[in-house]
């Protein structure tokens, strides 16, 4: 139970961290493709650092896989949004969207994990 709560908290932290870092660096008017690539790079670096810090407490894979999705794909989405100056202009709303994104990704992976655990391949040869 505590691990599951921890997964969601970690997802929220990585989501918020990525959203804030991208928001601080990507300015409105920046080329959207550059912003997307920059956001992806920021997200990947950040997820790696945060994931490494959190992994001993939550598990290497249960931390790194959601964090990598949040960092990479969230970073791309946040970068494109900020380059357009569309939505989440305030830091608080930017943080909230990052948290929501992180929690949604963790929830999706929990659902996916539950489905995949039921998969057993017998005599795969």
């Amino acid at each position: 139970m505590w691990f599951v709560i921890g997964d969601y908290v970690a997802g929220a932290v990585v989501g918020a961290g990525t959203a804030l870092a991208v928001h601080a660096i990507v300015q409105p008017g920046m080329d959207m493709v550059i912003a997307m690539l920059l956001g992806m790079a920021i997200g990947m670096v950040l997820h790696f650092v945060l994931g490494f810090i959190l992994a001993p407490f939550l598990g290497m894979f249960q931390t790194m896989m959601p964090a990598s999705l949040i960092g990479m794909y969230g970073g791309m989405a946040f970068g494109m949004r900020d380059s357009m100056g569309a939505g989440s202009v305030e830091w608080s709303s930017c943080t909230l969207v990052g948290i929501i994104f992180g929690i949604v990704v963790v929830f999706a992976l929990h659902v996916y994990d539950r489905a995949l655990r039921a998969v057993v391949v017998e005599g795969a040869d």
Partner: peptide, 14 residues
């Protein structure tokens, strides 16, 4: 080896 059984422990990663 002859694979007998493969079961997922976390996603399809572990």
């Amino acid at each position: 080896f002859k694979i007998v059984r493969v079961k997922n422990a976390y996603l399809d990663i572990v």
